[in-house]
């Protein structure tokens, strides 16, 4: 999606099964996420999961819980391996598949309720 929530406002109703709202523990990011939530709820874009990103300590966790405590939330730790991949323009899934941030993002899958895929 495009930065912000523009693309979400242009989607048809119920086009999406799950909306992941990625949010950093800063007031500004939380503000944008609140808007994303509002649009997702308003337009019926499926289940909403908060992805709290770049979480470095308990104060960060509390900032997210304070804003979205009633929503299912996945916490992703601040992870230098992801920052390093970002600088290089490479995939964290290749560079650091076992890094805590990568692992936490992959855990989102467990909550999606997908049927087991047939492994080729």
């Amino acid at each position: 999606m495009e930065a912000g929530i523009g693309s979400l406002t242009r989607l048809g109703e119920s086009a999406i099964d799950v909306t992941l709202v990625v949010v950093e523990p800063t007031p500004r990011s939380i503000d944008v996420a609140r808007r994303g939530l509002h649009v997702a709820d308003e337009r019926g874009q499926g289940r909403v999961v908060i992805v709290a990103n770049k979480i470095s300590d308990d104060a960060d966790r509390q900032r997210i819980i304070g804003a979205f405590g009633d929503r299912p939330t996945v916490f992703v730790p601040e992870d230098p391996a992801i920052d390093a991949a970002d600088r290089r323009g490479t995939s964290p899934s290749d560079d650091a598949p076992d890094a805590p941030g990568v692992q936490a993002i992959e855990h989102i899958i467990d909550g999606l309720g997908l049927p087991d895929a047939v492994r080729g």
Binding site: I5, L8, L11, V23, E24, V32, I105
Partner: peptide
């Protein structure tokens, strides 16, 4: 179908 939204730089693309 999964959509990912958020502020620019929050980590949408990485996620």
């Amino acid at each position: 179908k999964i959509a990912v939204v958020g502020k620019g730089g929050s980590g949408k693309t990485t996620t």
